[in-house]
Structures are given as C-alpha cells and as structure tokens.
Design a binder for these strands. Sequence first.
DNA 1: GAGTGGTCTAGACCACGAG
DNA 2: TCGTGGTCTAGACCACTCA
Lengths: 247, 247
Amino acid sequence: MIRPVPSRRHAIADDLRHQISTGHFKAGERLPSEAQLATRYTVSTPTLRSALALLQSEGLVEKVHGSGNFVRRPLHRITYLGGVAEPATWATFSSPLRVTTRTTNIEAHSHLPTLLNVPPRSPLTEVLRITHEGKMPHSLACIYAPRDLAPADSPTATPSPEQIEVSSADHRPPLAEVQERLSARLPTQEEAATLRISTSLAVLSLTRVATDATGRVVEAALLVLPGDRTDALFITRLNAEERTPNA
Amino acid sequence: MIRPVPSRRHAIADDLRHQISTGHFKAGERLPSEAQLATRYTVSTPTLRSALALLQSEGLVEKVHGSGNFVRRPLHRITYLGGVAEPATWATFSSPLRVTTRTTNIEAHSHLPTLLNVPPRSPLTEVLRITHEGKMPHSLACIYAPRDLAPADSPTATPSPEQIEVSSADHRPPLAEVQERLSARLPTQEEAATLRISTSLAVLSLTRVATDATGRVVEAALLVLPGDRTDALFITRLNAEERTPNA
DNA sequence: GAGTGGTCTAGACCACGAG
DNA sequence: TCGTGGTCTAGACCACTCA
C-alpha cells in the first residue's frame, strides 16, 4: 500500500468517523452545521463538505437538504439479492418498501434494441419503478420487455411490500439465464433529482437481462441503487445436490 | 422522473459527451486543458472539473495527472466474473493483467473475526494483491484465509495472466457456498493512492466469502475495483440440466 | 423568516509528467 | 522548467425545511 500525503478532507473524515464510532455523535443525532464544523476544523465549507461526502458514501452520515447532516442508524442498508431462485420473483429487498409504478408503451430506441436483442422501433413496454422507504425515495428501476410479453400491471400499483414482482411469467417458457452487470458511477442529474441524493454520491448501477429457454430476451432492467444505503448480494451454491444447513 | 434545474456541470458533461460520441473528440485523443475548457464554457475550474468527474465515472474520459484528460478507448472495461464455476479459480478477468502479490502472516483483528467466523487473534494469512494493466494499477484485493488453509504462495508471484488463482484448494473439502456483497462508495485515501485514481471516482467494493461443505469459512476477500474501468458480471443459469447453447 | 445544505466563483498553491 | 491536473480557500447566491 502506498502512504499518501494526508489530505484535510480525509483527516476530517477520519476524525468524524472516530467520533461516531465512539458514540460522541450518536445514531440519529444531527451533526453541527457545516459552517460550524468548517470553523471547528479551520477549513473552508467545500473542503468540509467533501469530507462529509466520504462519510455519506460509507453510509455513516445522511445529508438532508435544508435540515442538516445526521448520523445514520446502523444496519439500515438494504440488500438487493441477485441471482434469482424463482422466475416470478425478480428481486428481494430485506426491508419493507413502498413502490410506485408507471407503465408506458414505447418503441425500442438507442441502446434498447441491442440490450433486448430486438429490431429498432419494435414495441416495448417500459415500467418505471420507484421504491420508497418511508417518505424518501430509495431506488429506481427501468424495466423493458417486449410488448407481447409484458405483464398486465395495474398502474401505480402497490404490491406486496416484502417482495417485488416484476414479471409474473406464468404460462410462458421458463427463464434460462439471468445476467446481472454491476458498475459504480455517479448519478445522472435526473437520477440524483428523482432519488433526492447528492450528485456526488456514488450509485450502484445494475443491468439485468433475463433470457428464456428459447434464447429470447424476456426482460431487461436498469436499476440505480444509491451507494450509501444499498448493497447487492450474490450467493452461489456449488454442489447443489448437497446443501449444507448452516449459514 | 423529476425534471431537475439544469446544473452547469451536467450541461457541460452532456456537451462533451456529445462531442465524444460524434467523434469531434476521438478515442485516445487529449482534450484541451481544464483551464482552456473552463474558459470556453465560462465556468470556474472546480465546476469544469466536476463535469469531467462525471465523464470519468462513466468511463468516457481518463484523467492523467500532469499530462491531461484523454478520451477513453471504448470497450476498455474489464469484467469481474462473479459466481465461480471452478473452486480453484477465484475470479476471471477478461483482459490480460499483471499481478503483484505480497503475503503476510497476521492475527485476526477488528472486523476479520466476524468476517471469517474465527476467534480474535487467530492466525491468518493476508494476501495483498495488486493487478496492473499496462503500467497503471487496476484493482486491489485483500485476501484473508485461516493460516492452516493458506496456499503455499510464492512471494511476489506472477501467475498465469489469464486467470488469477487465489486458493489452490486441492485435497480439501470442496467449496459449498460463495457470497459476494457489492457496494458503491468513494475510495479511501490509501486506496486512491495505491490505484492512482481520483478520490472522487467511485469504486465498486466487493466482499467475497467462500465457505466449504463443513460450513467453515475458507477465505474472505475484499476487492476494490475502480468504477470507471470495471464491471462485475454475474450469470445465473436456471434449470441447469438443459443449457441453451446461445449467449 | 431564519437556518440549513447545494452550487458556483476566482483565484492560490502544490504535485506530477514530459521535454 | 513548464504546463498539467489536484487541492484548497473565502466568499456569494440559491433552494429547501421547519417553525
């Protein structure tokens, strides 16, 4: 490992992190205002804010515009469970969530023909899905499916809070393969505004393509998960015929 | 989707993105200096730099300290393949890479006992692994294993460039389960210095825990993958008895 | 309306890379 | 050495939240 020159923002982040872990700042508590903290550490506000951005990306601090910076309650992270077990269940989050859905009929354009392996301008159903935790938006999903495969979804539905169904693929060929591609990036301005997160907070970007046994792409989903409050978990079991009982 | 107030940095990023995609700036080419671009867009340097940070996190632009900003050659992303198929193969990257390894004997401390499910201060082997692509560092891995399970690794080895072996588990109980937890966050200062990336470039942080058939944790690995040049790909095949031949 | 965070400016100074 | 990007300052102004 390379020993870097200590930078102010990391030094401040280290100090605040220590104060949070020792309980000097307690969970749920509001931190002093950024102006006060900047004075205390004798740095300018942009520098202090970049220190807070580090803690935010670790999920230790939550910023609320107009109200303050708060110490995150621990274990508040939400887990996206990848590698589906049941075709009907798309993704399981470990927390109860409220879901808003908007369904639109569109034609394949830009990157969608490639992604879904369909001709350009072929009919698709687009489902825009925003999940809320409490009153804060939490994650964003854009799901595309060929129109003839699209499930009859009630507009603005509020399905079971425990599990989020995306495609209720009942009487169709079973899913054969699911590809999930993840990357870390900064949000677009739209994404940041919709999720009400800072534009400097990294997001986990997940592209999921499900293919049925005939090789046809059944559904493609683009998920955006804020990095401060979301993990993605993939569990692979080998030698599936003998499953060890312990976790 | 919420329509945000257009911010200067996103407007500039959109414009540059467009100029790159239309070939006005070609792959491998150097962009004008940040000072020149700031003048052209009539913004201050921090604002222009934050616009470049967006493009960097998308993998479109590469910053080289002291030398300039360059248009990334496309498809230069490296893919981490999750969900192992072979117990001996830990992770496969799609590009030839050079690997530097340093092995240390340590005792379990801080978060390691929990992660590996061993008592505190129990003997572990730590392997620090830095992969290079060309002369630039590319990814960082910290691998921990109980000492009695640790493979006899030659110090500073340069194994097969195509595949990176981590545990050559030959005559031991087979792996039963692999858990891979991913999150997006900003790098620590150490990570940024070691990988020679900007501290504002998001990284994909991956924690991988492998358990053998007896439930014992065989190995835990902490990977840090720069967000601008790395994807993680997980492929789940359902109904494994009949595998569709096409991709 | 008072106080908070979000964005942006117009510089300064340092660290790095190439000639 | 010179031009580059990296970090930081000390403000300004706007948007949001809450009383």
